[in-house]
Amino acid sequence: MNLFRLFGDLSHLASILILLHKIQTTRSCRGISFKTQALYVTVFVARYLDLFYDWVSLYNFSMKVFFISSSIYILYLMKVRFRPTHDPSIDTFRAEYLVGPCVVLALIFNYKFTFPEVLWSFSIFLESVAILPQLFMLQRTGEAETITTHYLAALGAYRALYIPNWIYRYFSEGVVDPIAVIAGLVQTALYVDFFYVYFTKVLQGQKFELPA
């Protein structure tokens, strides 16, 4: 564990708490892509099956349990509790175009051709693109509530912090995880446009609005 990874994970944790806070206080999931959230559940379930057979640490275990349970809870909030506030007509990104290629990539690129390893690879590839329906929705509507942009910023920061973590681990442990690194770089790159608007507008006190 190093500080980059710790702060990355905390930022990931914070992003989920921000999202829960947004849904609970506004009593609405307006502006949140159900597809992205459903993809995250898929990612966590596929990746954290090792919860049952591989012990890393109490920290690792608790985080995995939190990520799986909170992401499922968010789906419940969106589909059941605050269902009327979710508008599927603007959440139109075709998630199957993401899942299909990720399955294929995972079958080709994995550390061992076993069920858990292929699932792990699949989850890494899927996570890297899972935010696309959300970003697509943002692009479509052209604006977002400030709290939603904080959620995305925390999520993006988590990804960005994993990069110095890998550099650190390369020098301190000689460990490189090429699948995680390449997918992670792609994932972080997807946030570049968002961060540009976030830094130049939201953090200056303006509303998140994309130029028409």
Binding site: R47, V56, Y162
Partner: peptide, 10 residues
């Protein structure tokens, strides 16, 4: 590469 079957990152 990481030890197979053991992924310590979240």
């Amino acid at each position: 590469t990481p030890r197979e079957g053991h992924h310590d990152e979240l």
